[in-house]
């Protein structure tokens, strides 16, 4: 269907207007990260400062506490991915291949668990973590993240396993392979891109998690998303450092999501198809 010029114009207006709204705040963050304190409170403010400086980045990168928190985020993210994939991959495959009535029940339950906001779990976890010494530990945060990432990963990967043709698997069965072997040698390689993008999605989730990282840590296991709050609290907000730290925190997820952009929507779309 061909669009008339005025219809095309309408499309452009909608997209350009929204794109500006989308970019403006992020551009401002980027711009502020290169400003010194004077540049930030210059009146009227400017987008490109006359005296760009890397001091904010230098200071943030030189801040031991922030760097430690950044590594914590990395370690917690990678561990969450490993644990989650170990549990979720066979579960997703099993659910994808199941035919009995139990399947709907299990699926609904997985979905409900995935749906519940973190706040629902906070009180008992808080008490339990104090009792069993998981407070302020990376393993504690990995465990909590798994509450959300396992159902998420199962749900997404079912769609990817559904797409693997059954005939190939039947052949493997005939050759005497067990279910696990079929999963590892046949289904997994064929669903590999989807599984990998799910793993990245799990990492992003863990990287972005805020509520539990805030309440279940002191200093030792603190993640980057929490450490950034330090720059907001003392002697007036140090906006330059906040901006620089913000850029550093969103860089890893940005890079990852560009890698998996094709699968990102596909996997989410898989989750919403009806």
């Amino acid at each position: 269907m061909k669009l008339s010029p005025s219809e095309k114009l309408l499309c452009y207006i909608v997209m350009v207007a929204f794109t500006i709204i989308l970019i403006a705040p992020i551009a401002w963050l980027l711009s502020s990260s290169f400003k010194d304190q004077l540049g930030i409170f210059q009146s009227p403010p400017v987008l490109v400062t006359a005296n760009p400086t890397l001091d904010n980045f230098k200071e943030v990168l030189g801040d031991k506490q922030f760097i430690a928190a950044f590594w914590n985020s990395m370690i917690i993210g990678v561990s969450t991915v490993i644990i989650t994939m170990l549990f979720a991959t066979p579960a997703a495959y099993g659910l994808s291949r199941m035919r009995s009535k139990a399947k709907v029940g299990l699926l609904s339950w997985v979905l409900l668990v995935r749906a519940a906001p973190g706040m629902v779990y906070i009180v008992p976890y808080f008490i339990a973590f104090n009792q069993i010494g998981l407070m302020d530990t990376k393993s504690g945060l990995v465990l909590i993240n798994s509450v959300f990432t396992i159902p998420l990963a199962i749900w997404i990967m079912i769609a990817f396993f559904d797409a693997v043709p059954k005939e190939v698997e039947e052949a493997a069965h005939v050759d005497g392979a067990t279910r696990i072997q079929t999963l590892l040698r046949v289904a997994l390689p064929m669903a590999a891109p989807g599984v990998a993008s799910t793993a990245i999605l799990v990492f992003i989730f863990s990287w972005n998690e805020f509520l539990f990282a805030l309440t279940m840590t002191r200093i030792d296991a603190r993640t980057a998303a929490i450490a950034i709050l330090d720059y907001m609290a003392f002697e007036g907000t140090a906006w330059g450092k906040v901006a620089a730290a913000g850029i550093l925190i969103l860089l890893p997820v940005l890079i990852f999501s560009i890698f998996i952009r094709k699968y990102l929507v596909q996997s989410a779309a898989g989750a919403v198809k009806e």
Binding site: R218, I219, L229, D230, M232, A233, F234
Partner: peptide, 8 residues
Amino acid sequence: FDQFSFGQ
């Protein structure tokens, strides 16, 4: 010393 903002 583990230092936090006053409220935190």
